[in-house]
Amino acid sequence: MSTAALQPRRQDSKVGPGPSFLRILNSEFIKFRTLLSTLILVGSTVLVMVGFAALNAWGIGQFSEASNNDPEAAAAFAAQGADLTVGIPTSGIAFAQLIIGSLAVLLMSSEFTTGMARSTFAAVPKRTPAFIAKLLVVTVCAFVVTVVSSFLAYIVATPILDNYGFDIDLGSDHSRRLLLVSGLYVAAVAAIGMSLGTLLRNSAGGIMSLVGLFFVVPIAFQLIPGEFFEEARKYLPDNLFNRIVTAAPAEDALEVWQASMWLGVWVVVPVAAAMIVLKKRDV
């Protein structure tokens, strides 16, 4: 409550450092980790990933025991070979993507719903660097959380599988690709989520749109008959991801590079739209 701590005005024109990109990145990282909601959602992601892996491992074990008495099932089982267990660490990804995606929506929409955006863009009036910094923090976090929780899932699933004489070969090409692509995919979902948060400026609307895109639309497209929907379904982000990681694609499936490219389009278009709108619209 005193004014003594104010420095007398400097006479020189040098004002001091401004918002360089690294400083903005640091600021966005501070903002990211100082919210309880971030910690809760990251924690839930880890729990979901580990939980689903454990369930999945147990399920596969139970199924294999049951199939011991059924030669047909045993044969089908054996045909899958090592691929049987490879997907276990990332089996919770469908839910992890929604949680991390929602986190990404919230991190941006809450800037607007709380008014924080006014502080953020008073400090970084050019806006775009702040958006890119936040995008980087959110996507890197999404990647790291996915990969780390897959590892944790692997650690938890291994002893369960061991009971039934299975193991997971984490070093195999398929395993490594699955891990890497899953991390990148969740990062992509986070980027889409953050763009939705920027465009809609509304938490509920952003999360609903995200859930709609990743949960409702794929199911709806599956239910609606017609060639168009069958074809269009291939281009939904969810299915693009599955195409990239699958070892045995369907006959009319997209090439991996095509699927990757389309997934890239799914990220670039909303991100670009969000950046343009953020720059132009009043805060």
Binding site: G16, P17, G18, P19, R23, I24, N26, S27, E28, I30, K31, T34, S119, A123, V124
Partner: peptide, 8 residues
């Protein structure tokens, strides 16, 4: 702290 970080 987050605001300050943008300007060191």
């Amino acid at each position: 702290l987050a605001m300050a970080a943008t300007h060191s």
